[in-house]
Design a protein around this nucleic acid. Structure first.
Lengths: 252, 252
DNA sequence: CGAAGTCTTGACTAGACTCAAGTTGGGTGG
DNA sequence: CCACCCAACTTGAGTCTAGTCAAGACTTCG
């Protein structure tokens, strides 16, 4: 099992980011060094801090913590469109140079890293591998979005929830954030899970209980324990292909 | 009204594509010429032709017709994730150089244009504006996907349908494919609309009738007539911001 | 200890799905 | 030119998943 995941990086969040990025495309040692030097570590921001897109679209990376993109509709309802886990780019607005089009919130104490837009574009010129890796990271985010669309379009509540947990399990595994007992931190309230899954808070609660009752997962205090990963995977027809860049093996 | 849309291009589909692309980022005359020369016009492919991702990820553009990305789940259910209209890139797999990860079908007789991968990357080196425009096109596709996620997550059936029609109205307007009477071709069956909107065929049918009964739209023979665009817009809280690259004006 | 936010439970409602049976319309072949 | 066929569309009836409303219990945390 661990063969797929390869050895997680050390504990330093910047190294984790570099490790993640290099998985998309091999990075020369000099490219890594240049990135290391370019990243400015930000302060620890508290939970529920809103981060607005700025007119200067610097490259922002989530080093530690948790964040999510969301949008609101006039009626006060909220949809979370993307979950940002440590090692992810916070958003890809910098690729187009246009003002970041999206706003996001932290849901846990978080630290961001930042690379000045100008400096980043110099880096990509010097090291095209960095650009290729970044584009692949963006493509993966698109693939994740597509998969979430599929969840909302044709999976039931329990399948959606199971699929999300599988997805997070995989992504956090790659980032080295899953414990040996298949547990990880999930700093989201049930209301937030609902906003991400297109379900009401109450229904998320009941659905979680169904999974708990069958002893598939445990969830308490913002920490998930997966007791039966195989069941979860089957239930939600989870196929990690979209998270690896490999060819999809979906459908027949 | 027409100020927003600017004069649509002539009738040639390649010109339409160039016109669309230039809306994302101004293109020098030489860049346009180079693109014109690089595009190879493909044959007319019949409806329901599946196009698989190839190992050589050439740049493929839909010149005329209609196509959609879809994925299937084991239970035979289908989700359409993206609608491709004339002037759109068929998919953005070429950006990462990896084998196109997505398959799509035509739903109408369609013509694709193709640029060899190698030639395209030479073009983007010579004319960075082409790369910028392409990245912005990709960003718009992401934004469209996010908006569809919102539809599935928190809009009702009638709102989803109305929103989709508004979106298509806008996109096809930019492509110069909407008639003066606010009508356009929509070569999708009700089953396909359902697969795009996360609704059953039967429910799509009933929902369409609700819109017809209130005389908001007409839909027959693959052609939509919008009678009350304002109502549609309000009903679905449609905000074209995400289709223009402008700052979102959503929520308050 | 109180307060606020989160989680849990119950009862009722409703929007959307399924199944099943027509109906329409365009296209083909005799 | 008509008969037939198939796919798409339409309608009805019954069911069910998930939403809403409302109240109560559990946790932090100041």
């Amino acid at each position: 099992m661990t063969s797929v995941l390869s050895a997680p990086p050390g504990t330093d969040p910047v190294e984790r980011f570099l490790h993640r990025l290099a998985k998309f495309e091999p990075l020369e040692a000099e490219a890594r060094d240049a990135l290391r030097r370019a990243i400015v570590r930000g302060p620890l921001v508290p939970p529920y801090q809103e981060v607005h897109g700025e007119s200067v679209p610097d490259v922002v990376v989530l080093l530690s913590g948790w964040a999510c993109h969301f949008q609101m509709l006039g009626n006060g309802k909220r949809q979370i469109s993307t979950l940002v886990v440590p090692g992810d780019f916070a958003d890809f607005g910098f690729l187009t140079g246009s003002a970041a089009d999206i706003q996001y919130v932290t849901t846990a104490p978080s630290q961001f890293g930042r690379i000045r837009a100008r400096q980043f574009s110099e880096l990509t010129e010097q090291f095209p591998s960095i650009m290729r890796a970044t584009l692949k990271a963006a493509a993966m985010e698109t693939a994740i979005g597509r998969e979430r669309l599929i969840s909302l379009g044709l999976r039931t509540a329990i399948e959606r929830l199971a699929h999300l947990i599988c997805e997070l399990w995989w992504r956090l595994s790659v980032a080295g954030l899953v414990g040996p007992d298949n547990s990880f931190h999930l700093p989201m309230t049930q209301a937030e899970l609902g906003a991400a899954l297109g379900l009401s808070t109450v229904h998320v609660n009941r659905t979680l209980q169904a999974l708990r009752r069958r002893d598939i997962i445990g969830l308490q205090g913002g920490k998930v324990h997966i007791h039966d990963l195989k069941y979860l995977t089957t239930l939600s027809s989870f196929d990690a292909g979209y998270l690896t860049g490999a060819a999809p093996s979906r459908a027949t």
